[in-house]
């Protein structure tokens, strides 16, 4: 049986704006991925535990609250702690170029800003998987 890419989509933070996360989930489903949709108000601990249990290839976070500089590093640390840092951590939100650079240095993958195309996101995940 062909290998299916499994992607975890989760939304940390208190706000309920899940439009972007849902649109990306639908686009990834239509690209043939299996999307584990964890939904709103996910803590870094919940995100990493889910990623372990579901053995996803990719963790994609939608962060609009401005808390990306605390959430991404925390998730990265927990991934290392749990021995799953071979997975890709990526995401989208309102993140300045400066912060994007900092996060990528830490080991976070590509981050998509407002107006980004879901096709680019799908393409990115596919290419990452091919290289792996």
């Amino acid at each position: 049986m062909a290998r299916k890419l499994r992607v975890l989509i989760a939304k940390p933070g208190l706000d309920g704006h899940d439009r972007g996360a849902k649109v990306v989930a639908a686009a990834m489903r239509d690209a043939g991925f299996e999307v584990i949709y964890a939904g709103l108000r996910q803590t870094p601990e919940m995100i990493v535990e889910t990623a372990i249990q579901e053995d996803v290839d990719v963790i994609a976070l939608s962060i609009l609250s401005g808390a990306h500089m605390t959430i991404f590093p925390k998730v990265l640390d927990l991934m290392k702690e749990n021995g799953i840092n071979d997975k890709l951590l990526t995401g989208g939100g309102i993140i300045s170029e400066e912060d994007v650079e900092k996060l990528q240095k830490m080991g976070v993958g590509k981050l998509f800003g407002p107006g980004a195309s879901t096709r680019d996101a799908v393409q990115y995940v596919k290419e990452w998987a091919d290289e792996k």
């Binding site: 043939g32 299996e34 939904g39 889910t50």
Partner: peptide, 23 residues
Amino acid sequence: TGGAILGDRIRMHDLALDKGVYI
């Protein structure tokens, strides 16, 4: 498309951190 959205965990989010549960 051969893809799927698996959303059942949304309803079980309070089990997410219970080490005696595997979803």
